[in-house]
């Protein structure tokens, strides 16, 4: 039996070729097609998300207060609303969120 074929004679050599400048052109085409903005999540996404949520919750809480104020109209409605908004604004983010939570879970307010 003859000696086994030695793959190291060929190594990584291949018969395949590519046209001149092929890789550069393909890179540009891919750059055009991906819209120049590869989708990688922005840093500190987790830190940004709760802040955005807090603002959304605070906005919803204001809406809830406005709704409550409208349930009990008074002669001085405009003044009451302003005072409620001012009072709400003075609350910490946590307290605002807590108020919103109560509003969301209170069946009597919502129905």
């Amino acid at each position: 039996m003859g000696k086994d074929y030695d793959l190291s004679k060929i190594g990584k050599r291949m018969p395949y070729k590519v046209p001149e400048g092929f890789f550069k052109e393909m890179e540009e085409r891919i750059w055009e097609e991906t819209g120049h903005a590869p989708a990688v999540p922005a840093p500190n996404r987790r830190a940004i998300l709760p802040a955005a949520l807090k603002w959304a919750m605070a906005t919803a809480a204001i809406a809830a207060l406005l709704f409550l104020a409208n349930l009990h109209p008074s002669k001085d409605n405009a003044g009451s609303l302003t005072r409620i908004e001012e009072a709400y604004e003075r609350l910490s983010m946590e307290d605002q969120a807590h108020m919103l939570e109560i509003y969301q879970e209170d069946l009597f307010i919502n129905h």
């Binding site: 393909m26 891919i30 989708a39």
Partner: peptide
């Protein structure tokens, strides 16, 4: 070569869209 070109291009488009 033509098929390899298409598949490579599609690969990187997918890569960049799903990073």
């Amino acid at each position: 070569h033509d098929d390899a070109q298409d598949a490579t291009q599609e690969t990187f488009v997918r890569v960049f869209r799903n990073l």
